[in-house]
Amino acid sequence: MIESMLTISVILFALTILVAVIRIILGPSLPDRVVALDVIGVNLIATIAVVSVILNTKAFLEAILILGILSFIGTIAFSKFIERGKIVERERDR
């Protein structure tokens, strides 16, 4: 019972990632693509968690932490690029 539920949830996460990829390809504007990339990151984290429950191991938990950090930094970089036009500034003007 639990096993089939976990497998179905992994399949549904894969479908969600597929929909987000379609949004990245078709997305009319840049913020759509950024939000779709963020959705892919969150879904990858959830998929890794469910897979580590299925395999009954703790080896993937650090991968979850690294993915969280990287998708966080990536979202910050994209939003700063949209807002300011450049990512790393030489001199900050407030």
Binding site: E62, I66, I69, L70, I73, A77, E89, R90, E91, R92
Partner: peptide, 28 residues
């Protein structure tokens, strides 16, 4: 004995510095 090591540790440390460069600027 676990997942990890010098390469991944260096990548995570550099991502911390990249976050600093994003939020502040190069001079600071």
């Amino acid at each position: 004995n676990n997942p990890g090591g010098g390469f991944i540790g260096g990548l995570v440390l550099s991502s911390a510095f990249v976050l600093l460069y994003l939020v502040y600027d190069i001079e600071t």
